[in-house]
Computed example of a mutant assay.
Amino acid sequence: MRYFLLLFFLFLMLFAFVQRGRVRFFPGFLIISSIFAIFFVLNPDYATSLANQLGVGRGSDLLLYFFVMAGLIVFVFMGVTIKKLSDNLTELARYIAIKEAYKKTSE
């Protein structure tokens, strides 16, 4: 399982590296969280000691909580991005409709 997790997080880092020019916030966040995840996969005792200091029972629970929170943050940012795209599309559709109506009246 350790090797699978390492390959998975390395793949995420590669994906984030390739996507870094297209999206601003997401790739950096993904690279940093993958580095921490790889560190904790290779050194599970550190995750457990950090979890105990934060009041969580096990290191794996701490990592699960972390990735759930990270997923929710990404979900919120994606929602904001989709809203911006929708607003841009609405503005573009209005512009085209007004332009077409102006063309028809001037003919």
Rank of each mutant, 00 (worst) to 15 (best):
S49I: 08
A93F: 09
P27E: 07
V68R: 07
R24D: 04
F17C: 13
K83A: 04
V76W: 02
F26T: 07
S60G: 08
G59M: 03
K84F: 13
P44D: 03
Y65R: 08
L63C: 01
V56D: 14
I38S: 02
I98A: 11
A37C: 11
L14P: 10
I98F: 11
A97P: 15
A47K: 03
G71M: 07
T48A: 08
L50A: 00
K84Q: 14
S106Y: 14
L85V: 01
G28N: 08
D45Y: 08
S34R: 00
L5T: 04
E107Y: 02
N52M: 00
M13L: 10
L30Q: 07
G21M: 08
I32R: 02
K83C: 00
R20C: 05
S34P: 11
F67K: 05
F29M: 09
A37D: 07
Y65V: 02
F29L: 12
F26Q: 12
G55R: 00
L7I: 07
F66V: 11
F39P: 07
E91Y: 11
Y102K: 02
L50F: 09
N43T: 03
N52T: 09
F8N: 12
F8P: 13
V68S: 09
Y95G: 06
P44F: 05
L62H: 03
T90C: 03
F17N: 10
I96W: 05
Q19K: 01
S86T: 11
P27H: 07
F75Y: 10
A47G: 04
D45M: 07
T48F: 02
I32S: 02
N43W: 07
A93T: 10
